[in-house]
Computed example of a mutant assay.
Amino acid sequence: MGYRLVCIDMDGTLLNSCKQISKTTKASLLKAHQREVQIVITTGRVYIDAAYYASQIGLRSPIIASNGAYIRDQQSQQLIYQSLLHEKLALRILDICKRYHVSPNFHTPQQEYYGGIYLAIRWLVFCFRNWITGNKSSVKRKYVPNYRQWRRVFAKEQDRMIKCIIIHFNKEKLAKIRNELSRIAELEVVSSASNNIEVNYKGTSKGKGVEILARHYGIPREEIIAIGDNENDLSMIEYAGLGVAMGNALDFVKEKADYITDTNDNDGVAKVIDKFVLNS
């Protein structure tokens, strides 16, 4: 049996600690891609950001973005799947954040809207780092200063809003927010780091996204590899025929994986590709 679809998380997996893809990893992925293996970046980030990194490798495979909420074929630009956070649901999320004095961050496939001074500074630092490293990702980012402006954003983007991420370093406050959000039947709530909550429409996940894409191409789950490191990767690791946890993955992710590779700073992804795709 040969693997025909490899789904790879970005942060903590494909990207090293410097948020870059190593030359070794690029070379292994490109070799597999040239053998007509679908190498699919599967990320919580927005589509346009993931597409930038795919272009750095030379990949033309589809992309699963925003935790499975948005799947697009890069070559044909066909939208394969989209899961929306509708306007009223986005407002409910905003109201919960407002009660805890926390500023959310809402995403469309091409744009990120954020509130709060902390996030404004964070994105300035992020953009400066990208400029230093040569990252020319064309993600648009816009600061939303107040509730009235958020209502306008939700009305304008009602057919494009696909994800919310809440970032805060007070873990107790985050836990309370997560508990409230989890009680809303229409929401799917996960995390990709200790300081965040990621929110999509119910039933949206990386695992579901992999399943949808595999069905689109007629690829059985036994011929799929999924590689990740965090909670939001767990669904695809469990779905794939070969679920791989990074060496730097959380312990409960490692427990669910079929195989544990090296860390993201030691070419863990390349080692999986070499072992199970190129040398099998």
Rank of each mutant, 00 (worst) to 15 (best):
264 N>K: 03
78 Q>R: 11
235 S>F: 02
253 V>Q: 05
231 E>D: 15
22 S>G: 05
11 D>G: 06
45 R>D: 03
259 Y>F: 15
194 S>F: 13
254 K>D: 07
153 V>E: 01
8 I>Y: 01
157 E>G: 07
22 S>D: 07
196 N>F: 13
266 N>C: 09
118 Y>N: 14
239 Y>G: 05
199 V>A: 05
42 T>N: 09
109 P>A: 10
186 E>H: 10
222 E>M: 06
22 S>R: 08
11 D>K: 00
10 M>V: 02
66 S>C: 12
19 K>G: 03
35 R>S: 12
58 G>S: 07
87 E>N: 15
13 T>E: 07
222 E>L: 05
258 D>Y: 03
226 A>Q: 02
27 A>Q: 14
175 A>T: 11
82 Q>H: 13
252 F>V: 05
109 P>C: 11
270 A>S: 14
271 K>A: 10
55 S>G: 11
189 V>W: 12
260 I>N: 04
12 G>Q: 09
43 T>V: 04
188 E>F: 06
53 Y>S: 04
48 I>F: 05
95 D>T: 13
183 R>P: 06
124 L>P: 03
182 S>L: 00
242 L>Q: 02
265 D>T: 10
41 I>L: 15
174 L>F: 01
276 F>E: 02
103 S>I: 02
121 I>H: 13
143 Y>I: 09
144 V>M: 01
49 D>Y: 09
128 F>T: 12
198 E>S: 02
16 N>H: 04
111 Q>E: 13
212 I>M: 10
279 N>Y: 04
224 I>F: 06
185 A>I: 09
76 S>M: 09
116 G>S: 07
262 D>L: 15
88 K>Y: 10
280 S>K: 07
261 T>V: 12
251 D>S: 14
137 S>W: 02
95 D>R: 12
208 K>P: 00
51 A>W: 06
23 K>F: 02
73 D>N: 15
90 A>H: 07
62 P>S: 10
244 V>Q: 02
123 W>A: 00
71 I>G: 06
144 V>K: 00
95 D>Y: 09
32 A>L: 06
158 Q>K: 13
160 R>L: 13
261 T>C: 06
150 W>Y: 08
133 T>F: 12
65 A>Y: 10
144 V>N: 03
145 P>A: 04
148 R>C: 07
5 L>P: 01
268 G>K: 09
50 A>Q: 07
200 N>R: 01
267 D>A: 11
158 Q>D: 10
